[in-house]
Nucleic acid binder design. Sequence first.
DNA 1: AAACGTTACGAATCGCGTAAGAATT
DNA 2: AATTCTTACGCGATTCGTAACGTTT
Lengths: 302, 302
Amino acid sequence: MNLHILENILAIEREGSITKAADKMYITQSAMNQQLLKLEEDLGIPLFTRSNRKMIPTYAGKIYIEAVKKILAIHNETYSRIRDIAEFRTGEISITHTPERGALNFTNVYPVFHEKYPGIVFKIYEARVKEMEKLLLDGTVSLAHVSVYKRNPEFEYVILGTEKVVLGVPVTNPIAELAGEKSWKKPPVIDTSLLSGQKFVMNDSSTLMRDIIDDIFKKNKVKPNVLFESVSTGTILSVVKNQIGLGCFPQSYVKPSKEMVYFSFGEALQWELCIAYRKDHYLSEPEKYYIEISKDVYDKGK
Amino acid sequence: MNLHILENILAIEREGSITKAADKMYITQSAMNQQLLKLEEDLGIPLFTRSNRKMIPTYAGKIYIEAVKKILAIHNETYSRIRDIAEFRTGEISITHTPERGALNFTNVYPVFHEKYPGIVFKIYEARVKEMEKLLLDGTVSLAHVSVYKRNPEFEYVILGTEKVVLGVPVTNPIAELAGEKSWKKPPVIDTSLLSGQKFVMNDSSTLMRDIIDDIFKKNKVKPNVLFESVSTGTILSVVKNQIGLGCFPQSYVKPSKEMVYFSFGEALQWELCIAYRKDHYLSEPEKYYIEISKDVYDKGK
DNA sequence: AAACGTTACGAATCGCGTAAGAATT
DNA sequence: AATTCTTACGCGATTCGTAACGTTT
């Protein structure tokens, strides 16, 4: 059944006549009549009482007409919304990032983006790196701000930059002497054999960071003394500053400090900061633009 | 465009695959695919991103799907309502009557009616007899409880009974002596020549009653002295009882009274109590039933 | 005679199924 | 090789317009 019949029914009611309604809708009386008769047959009840004077809706007709009005209202609104989307005037970019990292990046990128696409809203999901893959695969999210240690062949990655993992050591720890004056500028590579038995505030086992650290410690046969775990990089930093134990965090958190010094793990321990999306995902113009300015903002930030 | 596509779109989303959705909906993958492609072409934007893994709704797709859900909800509700109407389980009878008369009849008829058709509601319009014709003709109302003095060829009339017009005369008026003891049982016919110059409380000129009285007075060259007019039969009765003047009202208001006596105008002044409807109006089963029991109730009331 | 709804019929269009193609796993 | 979406093509159903018919004013 053709959708036009819905509008035509309303026309019949408005005009009070099949002939007049047909004229208004640019079809023949015959077609209009056939549409109405077929509809009435389908419903099993007349929608109008035929009077030579006028087409008058029956009780069923009134109910049907009310429904048609509601449906057409929804239909029209939906079509104009979708037309807006097609023209990038409105839309949604769903993106996921980790609680600590993404928000930072996002607040720098968003104002520039909003300039060009004021109608597009971001739907932000916070998730650990491991969960992000699920969100990308099931379509909950189209983009993910992610630190990549091991790539997944189902995804495409746009590299914003690389970041080393840094080891923070309290100044009161004997190891700290090996760091030199300006370790915050260029952290020297640590001799991992020194780390066995050291007290550590570890990243929570839900984090990618923890996987990576476990990985490198296992390779180098380091057995750390884990005091406790935390998902928060801030907590880890403050534990180190308070001379309680050693901790690992991304390079971007490094700042000159009197309470701690920094070491790196060399090339072995670094990851890529990426925006990831499914290989089969069609990138919309706004999404492409978001990725572009993310790269720009990251480069300027250096 | 076939309406089935709406349900099919939801199936594609649910199943995450055209093939599976097609199986569920008992059509071929090909047909399902063609429907989706055509719809997407019409909208000018894809509704799903094709992944070998899954069909994932795009942002536009999500919006479309939401709209479809709303539309199908309205559609289903409407169809079940209309099915109920077709089977007389629910419905509406729109009827008009005069403020004084109809309500009385209606309260007697309604309980019996409700027994058989509990789902049918009455939509009651109060109107003067003269306005009733408009309401019937424009379809606002399908039935009218009406007192018929002159028939209209556009309407069909079901006669419930006839009713004479009665003249009420205060006992203190000299004419009252002519009435005899039990005028409330059988009002004697008045000699209209006695009425010229008498004080009258007249029915309002919007009423059919007034037209009829004017008619008969003109024929008999009676020139009444009109004190004032009222639409309310109750007012007229109380004026007569208070010995202020004479008044006319339907026979059904006659009761034994110490303050007034009754006369009739003979055969000349009587009308038919009817239920009227447009000749081209299709009477539904409940409407037919309502008319039947109206007749029954009227007959018993006598 | 004019206006309007209904019906008959042929032509154009639409929608579906079969079957083959293309791409991915 | 198997699965899934896409495309080609032909058949059958649907829909529309022309035109005639029936009824009312």
